[in-house]
């Protein structure tokens, strides 16, 4: 099992529904978020390109955040989902420093928090909150080891990229272009 997410930049309008859905699903405190929107503009008027991305933890295969965690709070569970055990986290911030994607934040209750790929929903056979609300169907979550999964099919047929590939962490967020 290898969970991953594909994000179709050709469909995303940057509405941030994924951000709110995550906040309400996971009790993310106001002013914080586990996923976010990035907008890139290229060119000069009127020859322009715009790419909008919904970003979150890349649930990397090679995890500097887990390696640098002094207490073992940051860990990997089945399917490659990277999680933080809040009770074991001392809030030192080493993982935040080591993450090339800026995907973690200090929760006001004193621990580090991040995207969990909604593992509580996934364990119950459902998909992540962000995927379930996306009005443009730009997000797809699934198992890369299952060649019949929607995400495997998308990655087999579409062009895609990952972010900060040079960091060498083998990120599992695929941006369809």
């Amino acid at each position: 099992m290898r969970y991953a997410m594909a994000m179709d930049t050709s469909l995303c309008v940057g509405c941030a529904d994924c951000v709110v859905a995550c906040q309400t699903e996971n009790n993310v405190p106001e002013g914080y978020c586990r996923d976010w929107i990035v907008e890139n503009v290229d060119g000069t008027y009127p020859l322009l390109d715009l790419e909008i991305r919904s970003e979150r933890c890349n649930h990397c295969e090679d995890t500097p955040c887990v390696r640098t965690c002094p207490t073992g709070a940051s860990h990997v569970i089945e399917g490659g989902i990277v999680k933080v055990t809040h009770e074991e986290c001392i809030g030192c911030g080493a993982c935040i420093e080591s993450c090339p994607y800026d995907a973690r934040y200090f929760h006001p209750d004193g621990y580090v928090d991040k995207c969990t790929f909604c593992d509580h929903r996934v364990a119950a056979g459902d998909t992540t909150a962000c995927v379930s609300v996306c009005p443009t169907h730009a997000l797809t979550f699934g198992d890369l080891h299952d060649s019949e999964s929607e995400i495997s099919k998308l990655l087999a047929t579409r062009k895609y990229k990952v972010l900060a590939e040079e960091a060498g962490t083998k990120p599992q967020l695929y941006f369809l272009t």
Partner: peptide, 23 residues
């Protein structure tokens, strides 16, 4: 030319603004 919205800044700003309100 490319413009990256800095998420951390955005988050920090609104966190400070709203924290006071709630209190």
């Amino acid at each position: 030319m490319s413009k990256n919205v800095n998420r951390r800044e955005f988050i920090k700003t609104s966190a400070m603004g709203t924290g006071g309100v709630l209190a």
